[in-house]
Design a protein around this nucleic acid. Sequence first.
DNA 1: GCCTGCATGTGACTGTAATCACGGGTACTT
DNA 2: AAGTACCCGTGATTACAGTCACATGCAGGC
Lengths: 238, 238
Amino acid sequence: MNVHTGNHDTKNCESCQLREPGMFCDLPTTGMEAFQSTKHTSTYPAGTFLYFEREANRGIYVICSGQVKLSVSSSTGKTLILKIAKPGDVLGLSSTLTDTPYEATAEVLQTARVTYLRAEEFRALIVKHPQAYASVIRQLNQQYESACEQLRTLALCNSTTEKLARLLLRWSKQGRQTPEGTQFTVPLTHEQIAECVGATRETVTRTLGDFKRKRLIALHGANMVIPNRRALETVSGS
Amino acid sequence: MNVHTGNHDTKNCESCQLREPGMFCDLPTTGMEAFQSTKHTSTYPAGTFLYFEREANRGIYVICSGQVKLSVSSSTGKTLILKIAKPGDVLGLSSTLTDTPYEATAEVLQTARVTYLRAEEFRALIVKHPQAYASVIRQLNQQYESACEQLRTLALCNSTTEKLARLLLRWSKQGRQTPEGTQFTVPLTHEQIAECVGATRETVTRTLGDFKRKRLIALHGANMVIPNRRALETVSGS
DNA sequence: GCCTGCATGTGACTGTAATCACGGGTACTT
DNA sequence: AAGTACCCGTGATTACAGTCACATGCAGGC
């Protein structure tokens, strides 16, 4: 539970500026210069937190590299993972726009370079450079659609089997095609996968075991291969 | 399953223009005139549909009066109600911005006056009048936060009892205070309430019965009274 | 009146997944 | 090497809610 403030770094963060569909790429030169002069880029090691749920908003965080886990928790300790944020994702956007507390907790999973922009500076920037609105809307839209997809998985699937199959299919979309099938890496423990689909660690272990036995997936460490997407789609119920 | 196209009506729809926090209220006079000249306002009776999930996007719908149910369904017939849209809400915004199929199905619950704006006209309008961006962002934000709240209810609550208590508390926020407690109307059947919290009709009936027996709620027709919010918050687990 | 349709109430049974408990594996520390 | 801390795998038990079935109540239409 250590909050790491990160090492501030005024050097340019190339991947932040150029990543697509990233934030601020719609800015004209003058806007980009303003952005460059106000942002702070830092490196956060795994296990550190960018912010916590319900904490007062400070500003937005743009991920340059690494992975950040976004989750919400109940008072009883139950946790739901909303998203594994990747480079190009903007965190805290919604709460910064409305100046409300952070919706979720952001924990670094893999050492991450993150650009931070203070709330007032961010708001001033987009007011001054309305071209940035397009990026803001794009990001908000992505977040909304992602939330809808998770709602569908959680509420419309009848069994944990279906939910898990759906989740794997969703993840596999960012994977690469190989002769053996779609391949991608799952940087999460069974416990964390369970927190993505609203199940327990044990049922995830059992269900993944089932999938392996039925040759729906193959696992080599954190590397997962789906030999036949169609087969997995069938058990996912669509 | 009858799709009602509505009776087009070029008269002004006062509640559309003035409702807060509504769409287009940030428009300057010239923008408002453009909006007035391109929109179409119609009346849709209960049971008709504005659009269906996965249907190609046509444009946005702004609710002037009445109530519209937004839901998603699975191939197995299971349904999740995302929202009961009220006057001032904008439907189809996200998919119109990205020009993707409608995310949900919009069914009229109570006879509704609805303003429709074609996708191209809407996009042209906001490009020409960037002041409208503020409204768009406000609406998207509301939708995102609403989805997050529903995710929390579905995934973090342990029992249907907790989910239902949470739902009633959420609804009661738009209710009015009376000497007997917080009062509001529930225009949904048990079946539909079940579709809000991912449960079945029978468990909703039983759980509501429990709540009545424990004097956590009182029902007179569609009128619900929560005499003691604190008590209901306790069973909701927060 | 009666009939039909729909919402609600309730009982009995069943099944999926949560819970509890424990053993084995790997990695990193001292 | 011993010790600690996680992960992962798996069995036994339990319970919550889904499913099926049927009774009741209530509104509208004829």
